[in-house]
Amino acid sequence: MYGKGILKGLGVTWKRFWDTYTEDIAWVLRGKKRYYTEEGVQHRSSKDQKGIFTVQYPEEKLIQPEESRFLPFLVYNKLPDGKREILCTSCGICPKVCPPQCIWIVRSNDPVTGRPIPEPTEFYIDMDLCMNCGYCAEYCPFDAIKMDHDFEVSSYGRNVYDMEKLLKSSEYYKSIRPLNYEREEAARITEAEAKKAKEAARAAAQAAKPANPPAAPTA
């Protein structure tokens, strides 16, 4: 019969349309809210999704996986006295590894000792160059630069971020990437302990030194 294929195809679309309402009813019967809840969004992004597929941004948002990356940001620790401890040490790995070369860092020297100050004097990222590849975060040895989850950053002008705009607290970082934060924190603690143990050993060695003064050279 001519037209059978078309009818079959229309049957598929009709089923899709119908599924939305049967699912709605099923959720009501189960006493759950299908829209505007995290559970609902999760279900609509799973294999069991049927009928409606829309996640109604901005009222609902997709659940971002932890590894999700958008723009880079710098991490600082809040100190008890309200000051910020910037983790970046201006080591220069991120500007070196950055594929589009969108990171600019000014490192200055201490006027007294002449040695470089770890904290960057200026830190610029041109977000209109950045390709969100995540290399800066991946290769940063100090966990000082990370990739953000926040994508609502559109603006009425060009986006060149200076240090003020780039800095975000480590609590924020913990909130978006809890597993990564935990892993890095654990690594930091073991490293600190190892360092402490080493120092203790050295101190012990030094403390032991006066007890055994080197034998005076005998003539």
């Binding site: 201006s90 600019w104 860092i105 490192r107 200026e122 610029y124």
Partner: peptide
């Protein structure tokens, strides 16, 4: 070749 020398340590944004 990359990396460019103008990015670090005297990376004045331009």
């Amino acid at each position: 070749v990359k990396p460019f020398k103008s990015r670090w340590p005297q990376g004045k944004f331009a």
